[in-house]
Design a protein around this nucleic acid. Structure first.
Lengths: 121, 121
DNA sequence: CAGGATCCTATCCGATACTG
DNA sequence: CAGTATCGGATAGGATCCTG
């Protein structure tokens, strides 16, 4: 901070809106950064996955929370859902364009943290 | 996904570790993406702030959650805390180097979401 | 396989009151 | 100003059982 962050009043105003309780962006961020949403979005970043694949890749998640989280992300337009009417049924999830954008940020966040925590590895 | 994400087995293995329940990186991500942690880190990204400035800039946060969140972030090494022994006392918070890295990712995430939600503004 | 429904517990979190 | 302490309600989330 020493240098002093120079921002215009306009930028400050825009930023301030975001912190308002009923700001739609804030709500979306809260969804995206929810306990399990983060990991679903990161998981789907590298591959489309089926329900059980997600459950197995995200250690510790319950089926209830996985389906609940997925439903929320689909509603938010971050994740798509494709049902194959086979027997047994197959349901695949993947990221929409928006979801990919968001997922990249989250993966970047994870990478930065991982790098810090394991300097040598 | 259309292009197909090519990752090596090594990369896949490394990524997999992260999803393990007791992975330290995962715990850190959970802290960072906590309900209020996100907004504290983003707020401090542009300026060091005092307690009441944070409380006022993050609409809807209670004093309890603010101090609790700050304590956690300080413990994690993301935020520093400076006490001026004046009367009345002044306490200032700011981002450590690590906190700045993380904050940048979060700000980037917020920007992407904001841009999506207001295509024209 | 992919979930929905139910029950129940842990915790989050806000409101309020109090302290240095 | 910058917190802490306590209480109680809301909600997240796990376990289990059940279904198409």
């Amino acid at each position: 901070m020493a240098g002093g962050a120079q921002i215009t009043q306009d930028e400050a105003d825009r930023r301030y809106e975001v912190f308002h309780t009923d700001c739609p962006a804030r709500e979306m961020v809260d969804h995206v950064t929810s306990r399990w949403g983060v990991w679903v979005l990161i998981s789907l970043g590298s591959n489309d996955l089926r329900f059980f694949e997600l459950r197995e890749s995200i250690r510790g998640i319950s089926e209830k929370m996985l389906s609940q989280t997925l439903r929320g992300l689909v509603d938010d337009g971050l994740v798509w859902r494709r049902v194959e009417p086979t027997n047994p049924p197959q349901v695949t999830y993947g990221l929409t364009e928006f979801g990919q954008e968001v997922g990249e940020s989250l993966t970047d966040l994870l990478d930065r943290i991982t790098r810090r925590l394991k300097p040598v590895s």
